[in-house]
Design a binder for these strands. Sequence first.
DNA 1: TATTGTTATACTCTATAACTATA
DNA 2: TATAGTTATAGAGTATAACAATA
Lengths: 153, 153
Amino acid sequence: MTTIPRAGSAFLLAQIGAHAAARYAERVAALDLTPPQTGLLRAVAVEPGRSQQALATHLGMPASRLVALVDGLADRDLLERRRNPDDRRLHALHLTDAGEAMLSRIGRVAHAHDDALLAALDDTERATLHRLLTRIADDQGLTPGVHPGYRQV
Amino acid sequence: MTTIPRAGSAFLLAQIGAHAAARYAERVAALDLTPPQTGLLRAVAVEPGRSQQALATHLGMPASRLVALVDGLADRDLLERRRNPDDRRLHALHLTDAGEAMLSRIGRVAHAHDDALLAALDDTERATLHRLLTRIADDQGLTPGVHPGYRQV
DNA sequence: TATTGTTATACTCTATAACTATA
DNA sequence: TATAGTTATAGAGTATAACAATA
């Protein structure tokens, strides 16, 4: 007789995580954005003025991919490249006013997403979950705000 | 002044989930398997004899993709197709003895993976987390054992 | 010569849809 | 005509690496 391994927490985390990412992608699509784009906007807001190279390293993606991401957001005036007069190779990234406005819309979307995903839990349980997840993320060496799966779409 | 939205639980779940999936992929690569392959082996074990069509629907993937998956596992004698004499269009899927043996190796790998991912938590906390995650997965209508991100690799 | 940013190429993976066989 | 399974094609998305500008 065969024993079927029961789903452990690691599987549940991967399963719920993929579900959460897909639902989030749907929500930000209403803003005509993809999850990696929202991640980049957020990263720029956290520390304006970083170079594309620095951001690519921070986000864990090849520079060539970041260029395409920046292109799309710059075309829509959400982000701008500013040349550094001291070292003209560097392009410092900054949010535009429209970019700031977009970021707060993203914040509202993320909040609604959070609320829908955790609908099954009451406030105390949500706080407990958040605390446990933070401990795991910290222990696993995950960079705050950086999604390892900022690939595709 | 700009307000940076703090990472909520939905983001943490997506982040940790992607991390967990990547670490799991590394572990099963040692068995020369991909995560979708392990998912298929498990699904066959749970209910042997299902048709490829039924399994494709269950796992949420196109039949053409399942065929390639089955091909790879059948070539390695982990899985076998059995023709149904009553309806020769149907290919019932069953694990071979080697497939059963592989599944228990997968179980051990998954257990070690679980343990490493939850290293930051004690037993009581792990139980609490598992209970909360199960409630969320259930509330969100996720099919037990089926990873929505059984794509790529 | 080294580094930033950019562009081009080649590859991997996937879904769509055509096709074959059985019913 | 409809369904199970299979194969072929075409498209999306990526990383690698070549390239241009600046240091």
